[in-house]
């Protein structure tokens, strides 16, 4: 039960983190005419942050024991 509560809290943290990552003003920092490995920075940023959030959620929900 305690673990359930903790997982819930972690997921809420992921939600809040995502809200910040995917909105103004953080988003505007990456909205530049800059390329990373030939790919626009904003494209790389959004997908990387997105994948990171998903990885966090997977880690929080799928780990066993504790």
């Amino acid at each position: 039960m305690r673990r359930g509560i903790l997982t819930g809290e972690r997921l809420v943290a992921v939600f809040l983190c995502g809200c910040v990552l995917f909105n103004y003003p953080l988003l505007s920092l990456f909205d530049r005419r800059v390329d990373l490995f030939g790919i626009p920075l904003i494209y790389v940023y959004v997908f990387t942050a997105w994948a990171g959030l998903i990885a966090l959620m997977a880690w929080f929900t799928e780990r066993r024991g504790e």
Binding site: T7, G8, L11, V12, F15, G18, F22, I42, V46, M57
Partner: peptide
């Protein structure tokens, strides 16, 4: 451009709240 992405970012964020 990437203006279509929020339609998928929104659900991603809400799924984190899906637990509740």
């Amino acid at each position: 451009g990437i203006g279509f992405l929020p339609i998928y970012l929104g659900p991603t964020l809400v799924m984190a709240l899906g637990w509740f």
